[in-house]
């Protein structure tokens, strides 16, 4: 039944589609610092949702709640919940294992961070972590993931060379392939193009556009044009709060909140 859901949507062509995840009453604390306050926002399935806002508004902090990255450092505390559908799991519940959460949700970082391994092993990493041993399965998934990340043609002849030898844009696509190899349900992008040149940025944006047929995407960006180009939904955050959420077209054309308008029109931030 769960498997059938996407098919149903495609037929109905519902404008808003299904909800893949939703934050409810989410607050977050770095020790005593209250970094996020009572955030409520839905993440639509197979759509791109952009998080925008001035530096320090908490958009990256919010993103990193989804795969429990904050659990890696002591003194961090969540309140509220993030529900992942269709199984309605609260990702932040203490009894939910952060490792299991991270296996379901992929993440691409600000600066490309390939592992000090070959291209092949980088993409195979997630499979190996999941205990996959069969060479043929891994070969197959690596090829598919590299194809999905539009990198296969560039690297197919040098899969065994070190990932560091790739260009910045290629490294970032490799990091995307690394996530795709394990079929994540949700893919988090944390300013994925901030360390890249315009051409590499273009190819990443194009890739994001293609990927949304397959996977739900949540992207943090400080570049409003980028948000406008790639996203279907946009959330504007300010000082740890969610100010406005809506369809990207609406937010950029007729923002309801004054603060959103100020930010979008460049009067702030």
């Amino acid at each position: 039944m769960e498997i059938a859901r996407p098919e149903v949507q495609r037929f109905t062509g519902s404008a808003d589609g299904a909800i893949k995840a939703a934050a409810g009453g989410l607050s977050f604390y770095y020790g005593a610092v209250n970094a996020l306050r009572n955030i409520n926002v839905p993440i639509h399935e197979k759509r791109v949702t952009a998080l925008i806002g001035p530096s320090g508004c908490g958009k990256s902090t919010f993103l990193r709640c989804f795969n429990r990255m904050h659990d890696l450092y002591p003194g961090n505390r969540y309140e509220g919940e993030i529900r992942l559908f269709p199984d309605n799991t609260n990702l932040l519940a203490p009894e939910v294992d952060p490792i299991e959460v991270r296996m379901r949700i992929g993440m691409v970082f600000q600066k490309p961070n390939p592992f000090p391994k070959t291209i092949y092993e980088n993409v195979a990493y997630g499979l190996r972590v999941r205990g996959e041993r069969a060479r043929r399965v891994i070969d197959d998934k690596v090829e598919q993931a590299l194809k999905s990340a539009a990198l296969w043609d560039e690297v197919k002849d040098r899969l065994q060379s070190l990932a560091f030898n790739l260009s910045g844009g290629q490294q970032q696509r490799l990091c995307i392939a690394r996530c795709l190899a394990t079929d994540p349900e949700l893919l988090l992008f944390d300013e994925p193009t901030s360390a890249l040149d315009p051409i590499a940025t273009g190819s990443i944006e194009e890739l994001i556009h293609k990927l949304k047929d397959r996977v739900t995407i949540l992207i943090v960006t400080h570049n409003m044009q980028q948000a406008a180009r790639v996203s279907d939904y946009t959330a504007y955050m300010y000082l740890g709060e969610l100010v406005e959420f809506g369809r990207t077209d609406d937010i950029f054309v007729k923002p309801r909140d004054r603060r959103t308008e100020d930010y979008i029109t460049g009067r702030m931030g």
Binding site: D97, I99, E100, M103, R104, V129, G131
Partner: peptide, 18 residues
């Protein structure tokens, strides 16, 4: 994720944590 797959993943995680 379907149930057998979830069980499999959980056992992998449990092994890793051990």
């Amino acid at each position: 994720m379907d149930a057998p797959r979830v069980r499999e993943i959980r056992s992998v995680i449990a092994r890793g944590k051990r």
